[in-house]
């Protein structure tokens, strides 16, 4: 399955797709997109890379086992959920910065929650696919 074209292409596709996935994540609140889709696209980017260069090499790029992303994501999402409690609001109250931030627009706890979803989705998909692919061959 290792063709030179795919290898070359995927080297450039990986950062582009990752960038696109972050873009999907950030604009999810206003336009189609969001944590789920963003995470899935990012996962596809890594899977494409692993097709071209082998799973082991892709794992090296990530540096960690993808499974580590799951607790991180869950942690961020729960933080976004329970942060309002610390300030005295009910769980999951939306908190927002007063002024819009350039490029991203309004930023609030919902975005952090979506970020958590994004990380969990990447972690889950890559854990599943990489474990299977590493132990099949």
């Amino acid at each position: 399955m290792r063709s030179a074209i795919l290898q070359t292409a995927s080297r450039y596709l990986l950062p582009i797709l990752l960038l696109f996935s972050v873009f999907l994540l950030l604009r999810g609140h206003y336009y189609p997109g969001g944590g789920f889709v963003g995470g899935l696209v990012a996962a596809i980017a890594f899977v494409l890379h692993s097709f071209a260069h082998g799973t082991t090499n892709t794992m090296k790029i990530i540096g960690y086992k993808p499974m580590a992303l799951i607790p991180v994501g869950l942690g961020i999402a729960s933080l976004a959920m329970f942060l309002p409690v610390l300030i005295g609001y009910p769980v999951m109250t939306g908190l927002w910065f007063e002024e819009p931030i350039p490029v991203i627009g309004m930023m609030g706890s919902a975005l952090f929650f979506d970020l958590g979803v994004y990380l969990v989705v990447i972690g889950v998909v890559l854990t599943i696919l990489f474990t299977i692919s590493l132990h099949t061959h």
């Binding site: 889950v124 998909v125 599943i128």
Partner: peptide
């Protein structure tokens, strides 16, 4: 859809 992916992958394994 997302959950079904979890289900499918688990079932496949």
């Amino acid at each position: 859809i997302v959950i079904s992916f979890g289900l499918t992958s688990f079932a496949i394994v």
